[in-house]
Amino acid sequence: MGVRSWILKIHLYGGLLCFWYLLIFAFSSLHYHHDFDFMKESEISNESRPITFHQKFEEGDSALAINLQNELNLAGWYLFWETYTDSSGIFHTEIQNPKTTYRITYDRISSSASIESEYKGFWSVVNALHGFAGKMPNAPFMIFWHLFTYVCMLIVIFSIASGIWLWLKNREDKVVGWAILIGMMTVSFLLLLTTYLKG
């Protein structure tokens, strides 16, 4: 099997592997640009739970937020800018994940937590798959999507280059193709440069 055949196979199968990621990336990008109403959802529920900490931890709001999150077994990131103790001694924190926002208040005296959960809907979960920069606490398997994102990025970059290479190897007339490719690349580079220098 020649080089062309190998590259075509990687291009084809790599593209198929990225199929869903490309759809998610495209739809979520369009949503970030146009803020579609149908993708917004909000459903709030409340509950209270007694809390017993099973581990000793350092004093401080950050440590308390992390330990509360672990005791409640909530996946997501706690928001340090929403974490504080108010003048009456009640502790407040917020935990965000792709599906739910948890607003938690904790009474140190009665050792009970009130949790307001805001379900953000199916599209919020899908849009969160746009890019995953790091590990999500209490959700260890998200590492697979993190790795999948890397693989898809490399495949897309390879597919653009290999697609052009495969076209170059074809015998068809390339005048129109060259004109579009060079023209659009020049326009795009100038646009990137102007935006970088002038804003």
Binding site: L16, L17, C18, F19, W20, Y21, I24, A75, G76, N97, P98, K99, T100, V125, V126, A128, L129, N138, A139, F141, M142, F144, W145, F148
Partner: peptide
């Protein structure tokens, strides 16, 4: 591709 995506969405629904 399908399994990875569906697994991730279901996993988020499960743990979040």
């Amino acid at each position: 591709s399908t399994v990875t995506t569906v697994f991730t969405v279901l996993y988020i629904y499960q743990v979040c």
